[in-house]
Simulated assay, not measured.
Amino acid sequence: MNSFNEEISSKLGLIRNTLSETGASAVRLRGTDWFAWATAGASNAVLLAAETGVAEVVVTAQAAWILTDEIEAERLQDEELPGTEDSANPLYKLYINLWADSAARESFIRDVTAGGKILSDRPTGDEAPLPSSLVKQKRVLIPCELERYRQVGRLASEAMTEVLSNAQPTWTEYQLAGASAQALWSRGLHPALTLVAGERRLPLYRHATPKEEPLGRAAMLVFCARGYGLYANLTRFVFFGSSQANAEIRNYASGHRHIREIEAEALNFCLPDKPLNGVYDVLDRAYHQHGYPQAIRQHHQGGTTGYLSREIIVNPSSSQTLAENMAIAWNPSLPGAKIEDTFIILKDGRLENLTFDPKWPSVKVEGRDRPVPLEID
Rank of each mutant, 00 (worst) to 15 (best):
F4S: 13
F4K: 03
E6T: 14
L14K: 12
I15D: 07
S20L: 04
E21F: 07
S25L: 03
V27W: 00
V27Y: 03
R28D: 05
R28W: 04
G31A: 12
A38L: 03
A40D: 05
A45Q: 08
L48A: 15
A50K: 07
V54K: 01
V54M: 11
V54E: 07
E56M: 05
E56V: 05
V59T: 03
A64M: 05
T68L: 13
E70V: 04
E70S: 05
E72R: 04
E79D: 14
E79G: 11
E80L: 08
G83N: 06
T84W: 03
A88Y: 09
I96K: 10
I96E: 05
N97S: 14
W99V: 09
S102Q: 02
S102P: 00
A103R: 08
A104H: 10
E106C: 01
S107M: 09
D111M: 00
P123K: 08
E127C: 04
P131A: 12
S132Q: 13
S132N: 11
S133W: 05
S133Q: 13
K136E: 12
Q137M: 02
C144R: 11
E145L: 06
L155E: 04
L155P: 01
L164P: 00
S165C: 15
W171S: 04
Q175N: 13
L176Y: 03
A183N: 02
W185D: 04
G188M: 15
T194E: 15
A197N: 03
G198Y: 00
H207D: 15
T209S: 12
K211I: 07
E213T: 13
P214S: 15
L215C: 09
R217Y: 06
A219C: 14
A219K: 01
M220P: 00
A225N: 11
Y228H: 09
Y231D: 03
A232P: 05
N233Y: 10
N233S: 15
L234Q: 07
F237Q: 04
F240T: 08
F240P: 01
G241K: 07
S243R: 13
A245P: 00
I249E: 10
I249T: 14
N251S: 07
N251H: 06
S254T: 12
H258L: 06
H258P: 03
E261V: 09
A266V: 08
L271D: 10
L271W: 11
D273F: 07
K274F: 03
P275E: 06
V279A: 11
V279R: 01
R285C: 07
A286K: 01
Y287N: 02
Y287K: 04
H290F: 15
H290G: 12
G291F: 06
Y292K: 01
Y292H: 08
Q294K: 14
I296S: 02
R297K: 08
H299E: 12
H299R: 05
Q301Y: 02
T304F: 10
S309W: 07
S309D: 15
N315E: 11
P316R: 08
S318F: 09
L322G: 11
A323I: 13
E324L: 14
E324K: 15
N325Q: 00
W330E: 02
N331K: 06
S333L: 01
S333W: 01
G336W: 01
K338F: 13
I339S: 12
F343W: 09
I344T: 06
L354E: 06
D357N: 15
S362C: 14
V363Q: 10
V365H: 07
E366W: 05
P373S: 10
